[in-house]
């Protein structure tokens, strides 16, 4: 099964590398959102500093919906999803493979976003370990919920509009948790960031298990 996970993940990442949608569209979009938040908050440094964590993760949520859309579209175009079914790969492997690919892209965007908030909002990172751990753990949860819901909307006609409606409320705990953990890592609010990491891990675990169980049922509904 690990072999199939790798196969699907590498396939998606290779498609991404060839088409460069993440690099040429999603990354500029993320940067744009950061700049627009700067305008919206009137470039007010103290306000930006307290809001940095929240703005960072809101941006990640937007980016996540785009990455999931893309991950779904790749399979819809030209009926490639049918090929996955015909090939007979375990649905769990497809789910995990696509989750890994989405997570990898989100992490790349987050690296650039961290640089962005340091430069644009004047954020200073107090605890790098906590910051990195938060990014990784939160991303696993986002990617798992995302790839499950991506498969869910794959056959729906208005899937571009339905996906955010479904995905964003589900990700609410991640937004809350990752923002608090970042507050601690950036030293903007005195909270226990590591405790929040536990909650993020719980979210990730729950959605990984759920995705593994439910993905096959969705893949059947071509």
């Amino acid at each position: 099964m690990l072999r199939d996970v790798r196969l699907v993940a590498l396939k998606d990442l290779r498609i991404e590398w060839r088409s460069r949608v993440t690099l040429s569209q999603i990354v500029p979009f993320a940067a744009l959102v950061l700049v627009l938040f700067g305008f919206a908050l009137d470039a007010n440094r103290p306000v930006l500093e307290t809001a940095t964590s929240g703005l960072f993760w809101i941006t990640v949520m937007f980016v996540a919906t785009m990455a999931v859309q893309r991950s779904t579209a790749v399979e819809i175009n030209d009926g490639a999803r049918r090929a996955l079914l015909l090939a007979g790969i375990e649905p769990i492997a497809v789910f995990l493979g696509k989750t890994v690919a989405i997570a990898a892209q989100l992490l790349v965007v987050q690296v650039l976003l961290v640089a962005g908030v340091i430069v644009l909002y004047g954020a200073s990172v107090g605890q790098w370990v906590l910051l990195l751990a938060t990014c990784v753990v939160a991303t696993v949860g986002i990617a798992a919920a995302g790839s499950l819901l991506g498969a869910l909307v794959a056959g729906v006609r208005a899937r571009e509009t339905v996906l955010p409606i479904l995905l964003l409320p589900i990700l609410a705990p991640v937004l809350i948790g990752a923002t608090r953990a970042f507050d601690d890592a950036l030293g903007s609010v005195a909270v226990d960031g590591w405790a929040w990491l536990g909650l993020l891990a719980g979210f990730g675990a729950i959605n990984l298990v759920l995705g593994a169980l439910a993905y096959g049922v969705l893949l059947e509904e071509t």
Partner: peptide, 22 residues
């Protein structure tokens, strides 16, 4: 599809509640 949304909602609700509480 709707059933999977129903399950996603049910499974995530405790963690939503916990996150808001904390």
């Amino acid at each position: 599809r709707a059933a999977v949304v129903g399950l996603v909602a049910a499974v995530n609700l405790p963690i939503v509640n916990r996150s808001v509480e904390w």
